[in-house]
Design a protein around this nucleic acid. Structure first.
Lengths: 174, 174
DNA sequence: TGAGGGTATACACCGGGTATATATCCGCAG
DNA sequence: CTGCGGATATATACCCGGTGTATACCCTCA
């Protein structure tokens, strides 16, 4: 989730090098989706190129040499504005679910069946997330709640769209 | 929203060429976010390279020559499986909102204030979407509902997370 | 002593997104 | 009748983020 800004944020906490940054990211934000090494160094390279971080020193560590990255003033202000400004709230008015429904109607496919299948998949995932929330730690619970709330939102939308399928079909085929 | 598959789907309806595909996309799926021309031709090029479509004929039209793209059997089955299989249901357990909250706590920023600002931004956008739903056509209404449901989900999450901020801070700073 | 595992980085590739350049035809103002 | 703007139509080059793989170093232990 916005890897460049997150790494920059971790660097505002304290200077570090790629390998440790990856581990910090994984423990705090990874949650089963560890950050690939390649992405760490590619991102650090771009941050350095854009003046958001600088390489402070190259020192030998436990193994090969390590490059210590330090955030710059520009990088710090970028983190600050990112944290301060709210994330854009559903600006797009577009969704994969909707695209699929419209295309299904266009191509004379059983859109209602597709929506039923989607509902079943969502319910299945909600059961999984409920279990995670029950058995996991606080962070897992918070993230599971996020997923659950959004799955519920999708379910409401699926139900409402199922009911409006006829009207939508008329609109699409016009 | 998955532009390649959507264009492929439009091509399953009938063979067409880039310019018209862009217009179809905009009328059915664009909703204020028109598809840039560059993306159309780049995507068509990749689809052709991967054997999902073929160039049927090059003919003069109203203006310069047009390339007529036709979907192949492979492309049609791809559309079919895309439509048939449900979209993955919140598999990631990651979110920008969560990253921001954790980073704010790490950096001793006023996370509660940030959440308040986010709540305000969401409420503002909900008012806009409510107006769109009221005044727009059916498609606008359906898409506005989708946005509204998800904004509500975020609001619930924001409230719940606000209440758990203390416990989360303890976890993060450990 | 040399094989394996942990530490640490670099490189090459790909897809999607974006901006810009280019070419053709038509209508119409001068 | 000329040439200019606008609609039609496509191509190209670039960037970012994501992914996989190669490389190098050091330590431990059989």
């Amino acid at each position: 989730m916005s890897v460049p800004l997150t790494l920059l944020g971790l660097l505002e906490r304290e200077p570090s090098h790629g390998y440790d940054l990856k581990r910090d990211y994984d423990t705090y934000f990874g949650r089963g989706r560890p950050l690939p090494f390649g992405q760490v160094y590619a991102t650090l390279g771009r941050l350095a190129r854009d003046g958001k971080v600088v390489i402070d020193e190259v020192a030998p560590g436990d193994g090969p040499e390590r490059k210590r990255y330090v955030i710059t003033e520009g990088g710090a202000t970028e983190v600050d504005t990112w944290l301060t400004e709210p994330v854009p709230a559903e600006p797009h008015l577009q969704t994969v679910l909707f695209s699929k429904v419209v295309l299904a109607l266009m191509l004379d496919r059983p859109a209602a069946e597709y929506l039923d299948a989607q509902r079943a998949a969502h319910l299945q995932r909600m059961r999984e997330l409920t279990e995670i929330r029950r058995s996991g730690d606080l962070v897992d619970a918070i993230l599971a709640d996020h997923g659950l709330f959004h799955l519920e939102a999708d379910l409401r939308w699926i139900d409402m769209t199922s009911a409006r399928l006829g009207a939508l079909a008329a609109e699409v085929r016009s």
